[in-house]
């Protein structure tokens, strides 16, 4: 991987402690972060490329405003859950050699985070709470969140990288959700054949969106 070797190169240079290499290091880090975000957002878009989290993707994509609220909720849950699961894995499971508890422990963390979010949204924005409805508690079983947590561990990302990968994944989820919501709002006035009305045409649209996102593959090299 290009940026990985670049980082390694910079590490060696930093021993020399010269300003130029520090600059290099910073640039390398930034590049690294940017690539991780683009990777999570577009190339590995959780919804349209990895097909994770399809349930809220179809469930709350009827109006742009609720889709935006959902994206924010997912962003929050993904960030918090990634950090906590990272900590749980690093400081609890790995030292105690309990890696096999990963899934159940992560689900526990995610469920708690979602509950927290739900309470917060109910308090802060009752209308959004109404609009999200059943899909809010369903973030718990949103495989995108669990998938993200597990991928973080598999890829052996540092905490810094985990945060940006989570943010990128959530942004990617938001992009996909908003795109579909925008299209579905437009579709309200289209004369869709009777048999395709509702979820059917939404799935077809999502499929075409996914095809379009295939165009991003190869943008960032993946190890």
């Amino acid at each position: 991987m290009r940026f990985a070797s670049c980082t390694a190169q910079n590490n060696r240079d930093s021993d020399d402690a010269c300003a130029a290499s520090l600059h290099h290091l910073l640039k390398g880090q930034l590049m690294n972060i940017l690539l991780i975000v683009i990777l999570a957002m577009l190339t590995e878009n959780f919804v349209l490329m990895k097909f994770l989290g399809i349930c809220p993707f179809l469930g709350v994509s009827r109006r742009v405003s609720t889709a935006l609220g959902m994206s924010m909720a997912v962003l929050f849950v993904m960030l918090v859950a990634s950090v906590i699961t990272y900590a749980v894995q690093r400081y609890l499971l790995t030292p105690l050699d309990l890696q096999y508890l990963q899934t159940i422990a992560f689900i526990l963390v995610i469920a708690a985070t979602v509950q927290l979010t739900e309470m917060a949204i109910q308090k802060l924005s009752p209308t959004l709470y109404q609009g999200l409805g059943i899909y809010l508690p369903l973030i718990t079983t949103n495989c995108a969140v669990l998938g993200l947590a597990i991928l973080n561990i598999q890829r052996e990302y540092s905490l810094f990288e985990v945060i940006f990968y989570a943010a990128g994944a959530a942004l990617g989820f938001g992009i996909a959700l908003l795109l579909l919501a925008g299209l579905r709002e437009k579709m309200e006035t289209a004369s869709v054949p009777q048999a395709f009305k509702g979820p059917a045409i939404a799935l077809i649209t999502a499929g075409i969106l996914s095809l379009a996102f295939q165009g991003f593959s190869g943008l960032v090299p993946v190890n």
């Binding site: 609890l92 508890l101 422990a105 526990l108 469920a111 708690a112 309470m119």
Partner: peptide, 13 residues
């Protein structure tokens, strides 16, 4: 470990 984790989360909630 799991109960402990559960308890922490419960307290948080």
């Amino acid at each position: 470990v799991l109960s402990g984790l559960g308890l922490v989360m419960a307290a948080l909630l």
